[in-house]
Every structure is written in structure tokens, then in C-alpha cells.
Design a protein around this nucleic acid. Structure first.
Lengths: 244, 244
DNA sequence: CGGGAAGTTGACGGGTCTCAATGGCCGTGG
DNA sequence: CCACGGCCATTGAGACCCGTCAACTTCCCG
């Protein structure tokens, strides 16, 4: 078992990216949370096609949502960073259409799925927050669909690196050598609708432009503005986001 | 001005696809609805990048959500059918990241965006319904991302035709000659991440297999099971869905 | 009868995929 | 200490799916 963290002292809340909650809401969230759990890198958090899974918030570490075709082709739908909510689809729609896999070792806050309705009933503001999280995740998937459908391989990679860089910064993960980057080229390829080989060649070409570095598991973007121009990214900033 | 329809007598509610609401909820929805409006085929319902738009439910007709790059490349994110909710992203996240355009003439129920919070507060079940709608739309975008990222052109077209066919049937639009199909090949191409020319050639090839017909603005799929196999579609059915 | 939108077809080029092989890094075990 | 295997990154060669350019037809509507 893992040492539990009280929600009111959640380390995520102090990074400045998340909107504050009232003490009553925090108390409810602490009741809503059943336990904490951990998963190793590469392990499955949610199986494709299974129902009855739990609700989680990713407390630390990275993960990704994916869907696969029968012959094994895999599409990564989006990457999950600390603060992201996991399992809402299954809960609301009744079946898991996608899988979730840990990219690094992760810690998860597990919630009582039978209390979700209580949350909406007794704390409508938290219900609204969950809608916010759902809409925000769809925004990211929208962006990925635009990339895969219309951007060239070079633009796609630039866009994804920039997006991940910003999101990681947003939850306080940046350091002097950039942000953690546990995404392998195979993951990049699966997320961008490219083959592994072409992803590698294009990534090398992008690196040749001198706009970024990936070293020792960290990503550093030297010239975000140039990358943004290359990716043709409109860059709408996200205001304070909710955290359940 | 358009003749208004009382929500309790909404023609959509009688098609069997939507979950029933309590009389109190229906009364609230009627207050929540400010007016009805219409838009012609090809007109814009929501502009990319604009904020302050209204909330709508598509009452009749077809539309689509899209995003564009600066040089004009356009990606259709998903198609909207009667019963679909429009404008939640803008409301919740604060800015429109995508546009919405009418594919046919449409009728829209417009809601008071300032009352959305009232909805969550006074009728949590309706708040839950809106989360359902958001999660369901993301499910469709997930499926489209899987198609564009990992399916071949032939599989993509098969998948999209099947998906649209099912959704149109689901809201009672099917007839002896199939379902309405106002989607041009240009729209198909924009939705599938393909060029117009290649879409045409692939569509012809699919038609040559004898699995479907598109004639007089209607789509008929003769052998859904074969199309499903071709598209490698897991086909998770959707239970009764909410309607706001 | 004219004009524009949608659909169709052929030729050609290129971006991306597949196959194949190599090198670096690292943990494991002899 | 070193050999070994596995994962990841890298690189070249050739094939193919798909994009681009261009021309034409059909249909609809004014």
C-alpha cells in the first residue's frame, strides 16, 4: 500500500496551474477518493473494451490513451499528464472504447465510481469541472486529429513536441534542461499516424534545424516561437484548470 | 422568425433514441431555450476563434465541426446530426477552437449561455447529461482519429459511411432508400485526411464492391456486416442518449 | 442557354511505408 | 569482468499509396 496524500495537501494544487476549490469541495473530494495506487511503466491502467473500471486522476507520471485495430495497428489518442482525469468515458458511456497505458511509473488517485452521481448532485460546481476536463481532453484530441489529417510529418512532430512541452510546463515539470520526455519514437509514430522509420528520419531533420533537443529523457525547445510557426499552431492559452 | 416548438413536444423526443426527462426537467429546458433559429446550407453556425457564441442543439439538418490551418487546409473533426449539442467547448473553455458549418439547411434550438451554470446547480441530472454528450462527441472524434491515423483510404471511407449510416438511423432518418447523405466528396476528403481526387477514386472502388450505393443524396448500405468487417469496426452500440 | 458546383478520370511525382541491417545503451547473469 | 540479449535509435534501398495537376463530364439552377 502507498502512503496516502490528503487532497487539501495535494502537491499538484500548489503548482499554480489549478483553480482553487472551497474547503467543502475539498472535503467531498477526499471522501470521493477511495485510495491511491501505483503502476509501473508499460503496465495497463485501463483495458480496451472492458467495463467496470475505476475513475482516476493521474497524480504523477505520464500515460497515454490508445485504440487498436485487430491486426495490431495502434493509434495513440492523447498523452496524459498529472492532473488529467481517467475513465470518464467508461463511467458515462458504459464501456471502455480505449485503453490507457502507463508511460512511466505513475501514481493514481482512485475514486468511487458509484459516487460520481453524488458528486453532481451535492456539488454541481465539481460536476461542471468534470465537464471542463472532458471538453479540454476533446480539445486535445481535436488538435491531434487536425495534425494527423492535414499536417506534414515535420509539422506533426513540431506540433506534438510543442504541445507536450507546454502541457508539461503547465503542471510545473520544467527544469533547466527542459521537461521530462518519456515518449519513445515508437510512441510518437503511433500518436502521429506515421511509421517508426519515417518518424525517426523526420525527427532527425527537425533536430537538424536546431530548434530543440531531446537528451537524457528530457525535451528542451530552444525557440518555441519558431516551432510554433513551423507547426502552424494558433496557440490558445489555457486558463486556470480544475482538478478533481 | 420561426415557429417555436415546445420542448415537451419536440419531434426528436418521439423517435425512440433519446432518454426521457422528468416534467420538471422539461420545464427547465423550455426556460433555458431562448429561441429557435435557422441557417442555410453552407452558412457558418460558429466561427473559428470567436468567443461569446451561443449554445445550440441541432434540431434538424446536418452540420460539421472543423479546424483549419492558415494556408487553408481544413480538417473536419466530426459530423453533427439532430440531437447533437453545439458550442459547449466555447462555453466551458472560453474560446472557440473550431468552427461549425451547416451542411444542409438546419434548425437550431438556442439556449441562454448565462444559464448553463443554473442548469448544473438546479438540475444536476441535466449537467450529467451534458457531460454524457461531451464524452460521446469525444468518442466519435477518437474513432475518426483512429481512422485517419491508422486505416487505409478504403477502410476509412467504409468506416465513415458505416458510422454516418448508423447515426442517421439512430435518429430516425432511415427510409426505404437508405439515409439522407448531404456529404460531398470534398467533405469526405476533409474528414478523412485524404485528397479530393483520391477520395473519389477510392469511393468508386468501394462502390465497385457492391456494398453500398449513394444516389439522389441518399446512402444505402446493402451489407453492413461486410462493410464493418472491411472497416475493422468493433461496433459498440450506444444506449439511450440524453437530449437537451 | 450559360455558368458554377460536384463528380470522374489519367498521368506523374513525391511523401511515406516496408524491409533490412547496424550501433548504442543497459541490465542480467555467467 | 565480460558476454549476452533486449530495447531503442539510426540509416539505406526500393516499393507503393496517395497527392497534385489537368482536363472533362454531368447535373442543377437561373
Amino acid at each position: 500500500m502507498i502512503s496516502e496524500t490528503a487532497c487539501r495537501e495535494c502537491p499538484l494544487r500548489s503548482c499554480g496551474a489549478f483553480a482553487a476549490n472551497t474547503p467543502e469541495e475539498l472535503a467531498f473530494i477526499e471522501k470521493f477518493k477511495t485510495h491511491e495506487s501505483a503502476a509501473a511503466a508499460g503496465s495497463s491502467i485501463l483495458d480496451e473494451g472492458r467495463s467496470g473500471a475505476a475513475l482516476y486522476t493521474l497524480l504523477s507520471g505520464w500515460a497515454f490513451r490508445y485504440r487498436t485495430l485487430r491486426d495490431g495497428r495502434r493509434q495513440i489518442l492523447n498523452f496524459l499528464l498529472p492532473g488529467d482525469f481517467i475513465g470518464l468515458h467508461e463511467q458515462v458511456l458504459g464501456a471502455a472504447s480505449h485503453g490507457v497505458e502507463a508511460l512511466t511509473g505513475v501514481r493514481l488517485c482512485a475514486f468511487d465510481r458509484n459516487s460520481l452521481w453524488d458528486l453532481y448532485r451535492t456539488h454541481p460546481a465539481l460536476g461542471y469541472d468534470i465537464t471542463w476536463l472532458s471538453a479540454h481532453e476533446e480539445l486535445i484530441v481535436d488538435e491531434n486529429l487536425l495534425s494527423v489529417g492535414r499536417r506534414s510529418a515535420l509539422e506533426r512532430i513540431a506540433m506534438l513536441l510543442l504541445q507536450v512541452y507546454r502541457r508539461a510546463q503547465g503542471v510545473g515539470l520544467d527544469g533547466p534542461h527542459g521537461v521530462p520526455f518519456p515518449i519513445t519514437q515508437q510512441h510518437l509514430a503511433d500518436a502521429l499516424g506515421l511509421s517508426l522509420v519515417h518518424t525517426n528520419k523526420t525527427l532527425r531533420k527537425l533536430h537538424g534545424l536546431g530548434l530543440h533537443d531531446i537528451r537524457n529523457g528530457r525535451l528542451k525547445i530552444h525557440n518555441p516561437a519558431a516551432v510554433q510557426r513551423l507547426a502552424d499552431d494558433p496557440a490558445t492559452p489555457v486558463r486556470a484548470r480544475p482538478l478533481i
